[in-house]
Nucleic acid binder design. Structure first.
Length: 643
RNA sequence: GCCUCCAUAGCUCAGUCGGUAGAGCGCGUCCUUGGUAAGGACGAGGUCACCGGUUCAAAUCCGGUUGGAGGCUCCA
């Protein structure tokens, strides 16, 4: 942790912080990368702030690590320019797991370039070049970058309001940077370049594509190695790998990219998840509906889906009728328009509200090809969707009840590592429907509710749905990418576009408010992340196969079948492994398939009507009377409820 | 969609300098009938993703397509 030290008033203000630290705080000096005085960061090469409390930031601190990585990014840029003199550095920040730097180049970097760049970096680190901070007139700095033909830096500079800027110099390399940085390149050593990628300048696809190099750095080689090992291990729980190994799902190019097939074992897990949620929905006053997979184009013109999200949909199915009129249908990108038609099918009274309409609705979206992968981003998926139609007065209570449902689902499945995000509209974008007043009202409602609930959350502008703001629950996958699962959305706009009404207590028509919500989000994505969360080892109630009966030899097959039949009477999912393999082999296989229970049956068990229980996690538990084990399994396989 | 990389048996992968293919696992048959994480033998599987080009000759070199991976963008 960062340490506070006091610099005496009598100290010499002309010496550097580093030299002072070396004299009085030798250990700290080795670890230090920068210091903070009040709100201001200083380099170790800065003059000593005499008579001040200074906070020494070490490489091991979160802030220090950021600085270390940022300095490593500079080191990489220096190496790149040495090897590729034409490369123009654009921007190179530290990020959560390391750093990157973007360059404009004659040809994009390839992975083969990384080794050479890394070697050059090592060389520069070894030379222990001093890193110097320098203040410069902004105009001079612009001129200098102009001369070098670097339009990116000049663009950044032109947006800086201050008249002076700082650059950091090490050897022949200098870079516009706020700092702070490590005092010399010798401080850097435990780094690794990880990958290359294309990246649009300023994230704008209309601007040039730059070549980005990702890397990471740590204070010590041990920490770097540990990070790399962890990365390898994380790959082993990747749901795409486990999906194949455990026979859970399949992506077939013959069917189409992003259109996953659920294999029997995966489908069994999904069935358990659906049953779990359906049960809960009944308890919470939801009504089921079913709606078709396609709807008329006009429906989506009214909803706004067709005009606003045309590019993200499969092309409409169109044909001319006898009069030559163009007729068209759309694979539904969302379920709400259909549900809204059910709402509209009757005159609704305030007494009917809240009306909670639920459907596991399959939707289709034409996601960009570069974005597809596994189960986390697909083109056909099923939402555990529901739409709540409410009087405005009911919004607060129902919104909170919905949040409670999502929290219950996450808690029950043990997903505790999630983040909550309030997704608002970007006021400068025209990709939203509805009046600003509606939006403000909806956004206020969400913010009020999460504050009342005392939830921790972040706000993200521009992440809203096109019809309303959302509260999103995000979870990370095995390689650190964050995905939105559950979501609650408040919507004043679609009720208006579809002219929804209910008759209030006063006998007049009023406009209802809608909540769109999905605790899982999509069954596919949720399943993908759940596979990774459990590393494929599902709890008994979700496990596709809950127990495998393992007969020791052929003469035990009959008893093995009796055991299976007894357990199946309780709806347990049981298989008998009758293959001509050794018991040890069958155990290994069941263990690798992450089956919760292996039931070994031989002479002794058949004789005594017991099963030799081996638990996936605890190993051999000895013989247990069959009836007793059946009871135990039944209890463990129980689908959880809020109780 | 854009950038980089990748595609060899069902799976994981080897295949040098261009001379039309290999291993392990899995699968099948047979032997083995076993007490808590791989018993043994034999065998069947491949238009080297697809289309085109260069070449006497292409898994190998070049172009395109499709699919996959990591990013960027997008995201309902």
């Amino acid at each position: 942790m960062a340490e506070m030290v006091k610099v005496g008033a009598h100290e010499d203000a002309s010496r550097t912080i580093l030299s002072w630290l070396k004299q009085y705080h030798k250990d700290l000096a080795k670890q230090a990368v920068a210091v903070r005085v009040g709100d201001e960061f200083l380099d170790l090469t800065a003059p000593l702030p005499v008579g001040q409390e200074i906070e020494v930031i070490s490489a091991g601190d979160p802030l220090g690590l950021e600085i270390l990585r940022h300095s490593t990014a500079h080191l990489m840029a220096q190496a790149v320019i040495r090897l590729f003199p034409g490369a123009k550095p654009a921007i190179g920040p530290s990020i959560e797991q390391g750093f990157y730097y973007d360059f404009a180049t004659d040809r994009p970097f390839t992975e083969e370039d990384l080794a050479a760049i890394e070697a050059e970096m090592k060389k520069l680190a070894k030379q222990n070049l001093t890193v110097e901070r320098e203040e410069l007139e902004r105009a001079d700095c612009i001129a200098r970058y102009r001369e070098m033909g670097n339009a990116f830096k000049t663009e950044i500079l032109e947006e800086i309001p201050q008249p002076t800027v700082t650059v950091y110099r090490q050897g022949e390399f200098f870079d516009l940077c706020r700092g702070p940085h490590v005092p010399s390149t010798g401080r850097l050593g435990a780094f690794k370049l990880l990958s290359v990628a294309g990246a649009y300048w300023r994230g704008d696809e209309k601007r040039p594509m730059l070549s980005r190099i990702y890397g990471t750095a740590f204070p010590t080689q041990e920490e770097l190695d540990a990070f790399l090992t962890m990365r390898e291990e994380a790959k082993r729980r990747d749901h795409r790998r486990l999906g194949r190994e455990l026979g859970l799902f399949l992506n077939s190019p013959e069917v189409g990219a992003g259109l996953p097939l659920w294999l029997p074992k995966g489908a069994t897990v999904r069935y358990a998840l659906e049953t779990f949620l359906r049960t809960e929905l009944v308890r919470r006053g939801y009504q089921p509906v079913y709606t078709p997979h396609i709807g008329k184009l006009d429906l989506y013109r009214t909803s706004g889906h067709y005009p606003y999200y045309k590019d993200d949909q499969f092309p409409p199915i169109t044909f001319g009728d006898e009069e030559g009129e163009e007729e068209g249908y759309l694979l539904k990108p969302m379920n709400c328009p259909h549900h809204i038609q059910i709402y509209k099918s009757e005159m609704r009274s305030y007494r009917d509200l809240p009306l909670r309409m639920a459907e596991f609705g399959t939707v289709y979206r034409f996601e960009q090809s570069g974005e597809l992968g596994g189960l986390t981003r697909v083109r056909g998926f099923t939402q555990d969707d529901a739409h709540l139609f409410l009087t405005p007065e009911q919004l607060d209570v129902e919104f909170k009840a919905t949040v409670d449902l999502i929290l219950f689902v996450l808690r029950t499945l043990g997903l505790s590592d999630y983040r909550v995000r309030v997704s608002l509209r970007d006021p400068n974008s025209d990709k939203y429907v509805g009046d600003p007043e509606n939006w403000d009202q909806a956004q206020r409602a969400i913010l009020q509710a999460v504050q009342d609930l005392g939830m921790e959350y972040t706000v993200a502008e521009g992440e809203a749905a096109f019809y309303g703001p959302k509260l999103d629950f995000l979870v990370r996958d095995s390689i650190g990418r964050e995905w939105q699962l559950g979501t609650v959305q408040v919507d004043y706009n679609l009720p208006q576009r579809f002219e929804l009404e209910y008759i209030g207590e006063d006998g007049h028509a009023h406009r209802p408010v809608m909540i769109h919500r999905a605790p899982f989000g999509s069954l596919e994505r949720f399943f993908g992340l759940l596979i990774e969360h459990f590393a494929g080892a599902f709890p008994v109630w979700l496990a596709p196969v809950q127990a495998v009966v393992i007969p020791i030899s052929e003469r035990h097959h009959e008893y093995a079948r009796t055991v299976a039949a007894t357990l199946r009477a309780f709806m347990a999912r049981v298989e008998v492994d009758e293959r001509s393999e050794t018991m040890r082999y069958k155990i290994r296989e069941a263990q690798l398939q992450k089956v919760p229970y292996m039931l070994v049956v031989g002479d002794k068990e058949a004789e005594e009507q017991t099963v030799g229980v081996r638990s996936r996690t605890e190993g051999d538990l000895g013989a247990v009377p069959l009836a007793q084990f059946a009871e135990q399994l039944r209890a463990e396989a129980q689908i959880p409820t809020a109780g």
